[in-house]
Design a protein around this nucleic acid. Structure first.
Length: 466
RNA sequence: GGCGGCGUAGCCAAGUGGUAAGGCAGCGGUCUGCAAAACCGUUAUUCACCGGUUCAAAUCCGGUCGCCGCCUCCA
C-alpha cells in the first residue's frame, strides 16, 4: 500500500518512495538537555514514534537518529548556575529524557548521538564549507555561514533571502559577521564559556547549534537520506540552515522528505511558564494520570494540526480507552464457536481503514475511529449472541496488531490482594442471601480503592481503574 | 509588515464537490436486586459570517470577522 507524506519542501502531499527499497533512514531533531522536556516536546517525539511504527508496519526497516544537544548557551548557563561540569549537568536531563521515553512507550531510535561526542565531525564539515567558500572567519574568530553563497537558501521555509537582511526582528547580535542573516558555525571561546571549549583546527571554541545536526545526520545516515523531522518552529532557521550546510558541503541533495509537527497549546494559549500552563510529563503523572492516557491524547490529533491540551481532553481519552479495555476483557470471556463471516469482514474493513488512514500522511483520527466502529459493530452483532470464541480470537489478534502502532494496551496490573478477593467472596455470599445493603457496601468500599465490580451472567468480575 | 495554519454539536475531532465518521459528556429506553458494562433511540436540516460558481459546496472562488504559529538558536 502506498504511503503519502506532506513534504514541507514541496508544501504538498507526496507519495513516499525510499532511496533504498526496503529501508528508511530518518533523522529526528531531539532535545536540548538543559531541563525536563515538556509535553509539547513529547508531542513531537510521539509523532516521530508514530512515523517510525507506521513505516515498520509497512514492512520497512527503519534507521532513526535522534540527536541530544548537550552543548549550547542554555546548557552552559545551567551548569554554571549549579557550579557543576557541563557533562554532569546534562547527564541528569539525558537520563530523565530516556525515562520519559519509556514511560510514554516511545520506541528507541537506533542512535542517540550527543553533540559533545561529535566535535571532529562538525569541525570537518566546517572545513569543507570553508573550502567551498560557504564559510568565513569573522572578526571575532567565529566561523560563519555566508547565506548569500547558497543559492537555494529559503527553499524549505519559503523565505525570500533578500528580505531576511532588513526584517524588523533581525538584529545584529554580539558577534561580528558580514551580514546579519549569516549564522554561526563555530563560536570561538569567550570567557563566559568557562571550561567549555574544544581545541580544534578551527581554534578554541564550541560548535554552533545548526552544525551538529548536519554533521551527525550525515555521519550516521549518509549525505542523502529519506526523512527529516522536527517541530514546525525548526523549519526556520534550523532546518533551513541544515540544508545550506549539508548541501553546501556535499553538493548532494540532503533530505527527500521534511515532516514537521504543529505545536501543542494549552486551553487555547501557548504553553508558557508565566501563564502557569506549562506541563512536564512528571507534572501530569503527579496528578495521577496513567501515562498511556497521555500517550494517546498526544498521539490522537493529526500531527500537522495544532493540538489543544486540556484536562477535559485527558479525561475523555481515559474514558475512551476504558471502552477499548472493557471490549478486550469481554472478548476474553466469549466461550465457543467457529469464526463467522460477519466478524471476519468487519475486521478486514477495519484493518483496511486503519492502515489506509495512517498511510495517508499519518492521519490518525480516522484510524482510531475505525477501531471504535469495529467495537460498536461487534457489540451490536452480539445482541443475537452471534459472536463466537473464534471471532473473539480474531478480534483480539487485530487489537494486538493495532497495538503495534498505537501501543495503548494496559499493563498487567496483577492479581488482587487476598483480603480484597475475600471481600468479593463475602459480597457473593451476601448477594446469594439477598443482603443487598451489605453487598452494595462492599462494592462501594472496593470502588474507593479503584476496584470496579460488575455482575455478569457468568459471575462477578473486577477491574482496576486508574 | 512578510509567510503559513485554523474556525464542523457542550468538549475533542474526521470528512476537501454528492447530501455531516468516531470519542467524551447529556437525555430517554432495554438489561440488572440496584448498579456497572453493553445495546437501542436521541443530541449539528447544518459546517465562523456574507456573496459567487455548480444540477449539487462544510468542501471550489471572492470578501469580512475571529483565533493561532513562524519571521536567528523554542519540538
Amino acid at each position: 500500500m502506498t504511503i503519502y507524506f506532506h513534504n514541507t519542501l514541496s508544501k504538498m502531499k507526496e507519495e513516499f518512495v525510499p532511496i533504498n527499497s526496503n529501508e528508511v533512514r530518518m533523522y529526528t531533531c531531539g532535545p536540548t538537555v538543559y531541563d525536563f522536556a515538556h509535553i509539547g516536546n513529547y508531542r513531537a517525539y510521539l509523532f516521530e514514534d508514530l512515523l517510525r511504527r507506521v513505516l515498520q508496519y509497512n514492512g520497512y526497516k527503519v534507521t532513526q537518529v535522534m540527536n541530544l544537544t548537550d552543548v549550547d548557551d542554555k546548557t552552559i548557563k545551567g551548569s554554571q548556575e549549579l557550579g557543576i561540569p557541563l557533562d554532569d549537568f546534562t547527564r541528569k536531563f539525558k537520563d530523565e529524557f530516556f525515562k520519559d521515553l519509556d514511560t510514554l512507550r516511545i520506541q528507541r531510535a537506533e542512535y542517540y548521538p550527543e553533540a559533545t561526542k561529535h566535535i571532529p565531525q562538525m569541525v570537518d564539515l566546517v572545513k569543507r564549507l570553508i573550502e567551498n567558500e560557504h564559510a568565513y572567519l569573522g572578526e571575532d574568530n567565529c566561523y560563519y555561514y555566508r547565506v548569500s553563497s547558497f543559492e537555494d537558501y529559503g527553499k524549505l521555509s519559503g523565505k525570500k533571502i533578500n528580505e531576511l537582511i532588513c526584517g524588523i526582528r533581525v538584529r545584529s547580535d554580539d558577534y561580528s559577521k558580514d551580514e546579519a542573516r549569516d549564522f554561526a558555525l563555530w563560536k570561538s571561546w569567550a570567557e563566559e564559556d568557562g571550561p567549555v571549549f574544544w581545541e580544534t583546527d578551527l581554534g578554541k571554541g564550541r560548535p554552533g547549534w545548526h552544525i551538529e545536526c548536519s554533521a551527525m545526520s550525515t555521519h550516521y545516515l549518509g549525505n542523502h537520506f529519506d526523512i527529516h523531522t522536527g517541530g514546525e518552529d525548526n523549519i526556520f532557521p534550523h532546518h533551513e540552515n541544515e540544508i545550506a550546510q549539508s548541501e553546501g558541503a556535499t553538493g548532494e541533495k540532503f533530505v527527500n522528505y521534511w515532516l514537521h509537527c504543529a505545536h501543542l497549546i494549552v486551553n487555547g494559549e501557548k504553553m508558557s511558564k508565566s501563564l502557569g500552563n506549562f506541563y512536564t510529563l512528571r507534572d501530569l503523572l503527579e496528578k495521577g494520570y496513567d501515562p498511556v492516557f497521555i500517550r494517546l491524547l498526544l498521539l490522537s490529533t493529526y500531527y500537522r494540526q495544532q493540538l489543544n491540551f486540556s484536562f477535559e481532553g485527558l479525561e475523555a481519552t481515559k474514558e475512551s480507552l476504558n471502552r477499548l479495555y472493557d471490549f478486550i476483557e469481554w472478548l476474553k470471556r466469549v466461550k465457543e464457536g467457529e469464526i463467522t463471516e460477519a466478524v471476519n469482514s468487519l475486521v478486514n474493513e477495519s484493518r483496511r481503514k486503519f492502515k489506509e488512514s495512517l498511510n495517508n500522511d499519518l492521519n490518525i483520527s480516522p484510524a482510531i475511529a475505525s477501531i471504535y466502529e469495529l467495537i460498536k459493530n461487534v457489540y451490536s452483532l452480539n445482541k443475537e449472541k452471534a459472536v463466537t470464541s473464534s471471532d473473539a480470537e480474531a478480534l483480539l489478534n487485530f487489537v494486538h496488531e493495532v497495538n503495534t502502532i498505537l501501543d495503548i494496551l494496559p499493563e498487567d496490573k496483577g492479581d488482587l490482594e487476598p483480603e480484597l478477593m475475600q471481600l468479593i467472596t463475602e459480597r457473593e455470599d451476601a448477594r446469594v442471601n439477598k443482603d443487598w445493603n451489605r453487598a452494595d457496601r462492599i462494592r462501594d468500599e472496593l470502588a474507593e480503592k479503584g476496584i470496579i465490580l460488575e455482575d455478569t451472567p457468568d459471575g462477578t468480575i473486577w477491574k482496576k481503574r486508574g
